[in-house]
Design a binder for these strands. Structure first.
Lengths: 130, 130
DNA sequence: ATTGATCTACGAATATTTTCGTAAACAAAT
DNA sequence: ATTTGTTTACGAAAATATTCGTAGATCAAT
């Protein structure tokens, strides 16, 4: 396994990953500018973090021009799943649906999204009937 | 607010909280024995952790007998909600339903649980129609 | 009342994560 | 060619979290 997703991201690293997943790719400055809105850290802090993440294999980067361009090296979905699993395990007594109920409870979702969820539930039920 | 839930639990602290939420209450040894199954740390480590958590206001304890009995001082639900919110924010592009879909996807749920979720979805829809 | 087992308290060592200062490279504008 | 601004690289400080050794208290059994 050379595609080292070996290391699990820290709190700060997750924030950066989140930004890059959304943007697709970006420079340190791009990321830092977004990060600044919700956090309060210097530019070199963000830089260092992203360098470390690159070493760990969490980010890819293009160094062909002076200003490097980064992008996530691990998939958003697999990371989400890992985090969810741990969370369900430690905090939701192992019950995924307990988590689902809690998540639906406090967040307002659009009708469209609700429909998507319903449809998905139906699919799951169909599968389980077999 | 004197009931200081000021400090947010660390990773290790969450594991302990999870155990105590499930058990209701327990001694250091109780908790340690469960923890040992999935982790690998000495008894005094668990002890120290729980003492710190008590200082932080994360745990209550009964010291009336030699062997102290601990229980969680913060509610499972509010903690779940906090963690969910952060997770949705940083890793799920702010979309709760994206999280829900992902959670439903990889975890097998019982028919009963699925019904509960469906029912809940209907309730939400009713509310939003107004 | 001595031994042995178990507990708490405490302090400090380790490990990990986060932060930032400083220097050197580079490019654009004066 | 010097200044100005922006970048990376590097190292190390600072902050946090985790781990554990050791000492003293307590209790039960010998």
């Amino acid at each position: 396994m050379s595609t080292a997703k070996n290391n699990k991201p820290t709190e700060s690293e997750l924030e950066i990953l989140g930004i890059l997943w959304e943007k697709g790719s970006g420079t340190v400055r791009d990321v830092h500018e977004i990060l600044e809105k919700s956090k309060d850290a210097g530019y070199t802090t963000t830089l260092k973090l992203m360098q470390i993440m690159h070493e760990k294999g969490l980010l890819k980067r293009d160094t062909s021009s002076k200003t490097h361009v980064y992008e996530a090296a691990i998939s958003q979905e697999s990371t989400q799943q890992q985090l969810l699993n741990k969370m369900i395990d430690t905090v939701f007594n192992g019950s995924a649906s307990q988590l689902v109920l809690q998540a639906l409870g406090n967040h307002r979702s659009s009708q469209e999204e609700l429909d998507k969820i319903k449809q998905y539930l139906n699919e799951i039920e169909q599968q389980q009937k077999k």
